[in-house]
Simulated scan of single mutants.
Amino acid sequence: MILVGTPLSLHGRSEFAEVIHRLTDPVTEEWVRNFLSGFPLAHRVPGWFFDDRVREGAAMPAHACKAIFNGLCTAPPPTESGTIDSPTLLLWGARDGAFSIKEQETLAGRIAGAKLKVYPDAGHLVLWEYPERVAQHTTAFLGALH
């Protein structure tokens, strides 16, 4: 399992709750652009890539966005409802303003044998900022499982 910028839990986190709950159809590209811009990037991503994420976000109906968000905030965290025993790699950007290193270390500690890879110069959207590095680390992790 590969976890990228993953919270220990989203219970009690209401930073985006009001924004999501006010969402109505049609979800506009402007709304998605503003929402995604709330995740600061330590490094630029290609404009076409960001625009593609905006188009994908605008294609999702508001009720689906709300249901996904509510599910993430109300579901029991897997590390509290059972044991994760699959090999796990956690990737996290040290400039992540959403989730802390303490959360990452706690999460890694709750998954037997988990490996935590910190990207010192990345924000929350590690995959966006360093797709090549993420691919390399993922490939190496998966290759070591054989």
Rank of each mutant, 00 (worst) to 15 (best):
R33E: 15
V126T: 06
E80H: 11
R22D: 01
H11K: 14
E129Q: 10
E129C: 12
Y130K: 07
K66A: 06
S14Q: 10
W128Y: 14
H124G: 08
R33H: 11
F99D: 01
G109K: 10
W31N: 03
A67W: 13
G113W: 05
E29L: 09
K102I: 12
D25I: 13
A94H: 01
F141K: 05
F50V: 03
E129P: 07
A67I: 05
Y130E: 03
P87N: 14
M60E: 05
V4N: 07
P76N: 07
L90V: 11
E18F: 06
R44L: 04
E30D: 14
H63G: 00
T24D: 03
Q136R: 15
G47F: 02
A135Q: 05
Y130R: 06
T6A: 14
G82N: 08
H11S: 09
L90N: 00
V118F: 14
P40R: 10
D85M: 02
E105L: 08
A144R: 08
I101F: 07
F35T: 07
H21M: 11
A122K: 01
S37V: 02
A64S: 05
P78E: 10
L125D: 12
A75S: 13
H146V: 08
A98W: 09
L116G: 03
G57D: 06
A108E: 05
A140P: 01
A108Y: 01
S86H: 10
I68M: 03
R55Q: 13
G82H: 11
E132I: 11
G109A: 05
